[in-house]
């Protein structure tokens, strides 16, 4: 059977619940995601209704992550009551299209905390090494 087109098959039931999610399209050790709208009950491996964008989670040579969003179609599907999955909501929040997702703040805060802890640990280790040298 031929693969369904990346842009989607466009076949859907009008009243069924839709969901805008990330669908992994890369290969092993190289993730790449399509942002697609699909039936909420369908698996990610099944053909989607429409592709709405893409997300490349691996930074490029300029240390940038690229996200493409078809905002017109996203608005259309949101207007039809589509559910948005948390990773997509986070991306849309970062893009300034949605309010920032609470999970983004949580991640940022946790990252800051681990960094702080790591630096404190490092300082302690250095201090300990100094005292050992002095002794």
């Amino acid at each position: 059977m031929p693969l369904p087109p990346a842009s989607g098959t466009g076949r859907y039931f009008v009243k069924a619940a839709k969901s805008i999610r990330l669908i992994r399209q890369g290969c092993t050790n190289r993730p790449f995601f399509h942002i697609s709208v699909t039936h909420r009950k369908r698996l990610n491996s099944q053909p989607v209704i429409e592709q709405l964008g893409s997300y490349d989670p691996m930074p490029n040579f300029n240390n940038e992550k690229l996200v493409a969003l078809n905002l017109e179609r996203i608005k259309f599907w949101l207007g039809h009551g589509a559910h948005v999955s948390p990773p997509v909501a986070e991306l849309l929040g970062l893009a300034g299209f949605f309010p920032i997702h609470p999970r983004s703040y949580m991640t940022a805060w946790r990252n800051r905390r681990t960094e702080r802890e790591n630096s404190e640990k490092q300082k302690e280790a250095e201090a300990a090494a100094k005292t050992a040298d002095a002794a």
Binding site: G53, P59, N62, N63, E64, K65, L66, V67, A68, L69, N70, L71, E72, R73, L91, L94, A95, G96, I100, S104, Y105, T107, A108, W109, N111, R112, E115
Partner: peptide, 23 residues
């Protein structure tokens, strides 16, 4: 500058670029 959100410092080390690919 569209908005400044210092609470997002530390979210990621790389920049995010968003492109609207509306037809």
């Amino acid at each position: 500058v569209l908005s400044k959100d210092p609470a997002l410092v530390g979210y990621d080390t790389s920049k995010y670029l968003f492109t609207d690919i509306t037809f």
